[in-house]
Nucleic acid binder design. Structure first.
Lengths: 145, 145
DNA sequence: AATAAAAAAGATAAAAAACTCTTTTATTGT
DNA sequence: ACAATAAAAGAGTTTTTTATCTTTTTTATT
């Protein structure tokens, strides 16, 4: 088990890629993105369509069209992508899968997991999409393989 | 997305239940366990068969048979259950799903996730199966719903 | 207006995960 | 030995996730 679904992994990598490539109003096509992050092209297209509907990413059809991120989108925290794709289960769900788990009716691991969930949430909340552009430019960080 | 697979959630809850109920050499049947943790009976049977093969839980067939945990099994850390069921992906895998992600070829989130993965690992490693017996006896913690 | 480019939408397909049902094997007690 | 009990094993089915392929719509350019 990974932390995120495959869909969400592709989504994050794709958004990073777009943020990195499509600076200053340029647009990136789905072929370039899927090649750039090593993901199945049509599957990624579906994911970006969905994120586009939700306003996480912007898109334009036709020649010179493609995906891009406006000012607001670039500033968004990673948490927004994760929540749009995987929902908030990772932030609030019970580690043992109990529906009613809560402070008053906790599972044995409730408190331990609360800490970890909060850390994941904090991390994703304080990290903006555009934050890795420099590392990607410098080739310090990778989105492929 | 949850942290663990459904299979793993059932596994942990079942093992907690067995540890709690089957003190002092007693055995618990699959019916009682699945009722006690609110899981599908036959599915859980498969899971426990697997854990039994792997030595995480002990079992005995026939009348008065059932599942139980020997001394060594009770002392095991939760990490052993998780690893037996979900593998070590949650401890070592890349958050963005990259196969080659590492210190020398990190994804943008590599360092942040390393911290979180380590915390999950530490928590599961230092927590023993039997550790929640008291909370369960006192009804402070719940394994159902 | 015609053409070409590119995302959106629709429809399937394949693989994995979750779950169910039936039969077999081992063990205990009579 | 026989009957009853309970896990193990085998063989599905269903649902969800992941992935592919085709057609449609929108837009820019000529």
């Amino acid at each position: 088990m990974a932390i995120f679904s495959k869909t969400c992994e592709y989504a994050i990598r794709a958004i990073f890629f777009i943020a990195h490539k499509a600076s200053a109003g340029a647009r990136v096509g789905i072929k370039e993105i899927s090649a750039g992050i090593d993901s199945p092209e049509h599957f990624l297209a579906k994911i970006l369509q969905d994120l586009s509907r939700k306003g996480i990413v912007q898109s334009a059809k036709g020649p010179n069209g493609g995906f891009y991120l406006d000012e607001a989108a670039l500033k968004r925290p990673l948490a927004d992508i994760v929540e749009a794709v995987d929902g908030n289960g990772i932030f609030i769900g019970c580690g043992l899968g109990l529906k009613q788990c809560s402070e008053v009716n906790p599972c044995p691991l409730h408190n331990d997991f609360k800490m970890i969930r909060n850390q994941i949430h904090d991390l994703l909340q304080r990290t903006a999409i555009s934050e890795f552009n420099e590392d990607l430019n410098l080739g310090i960080a990778s989105l492929k393989k």
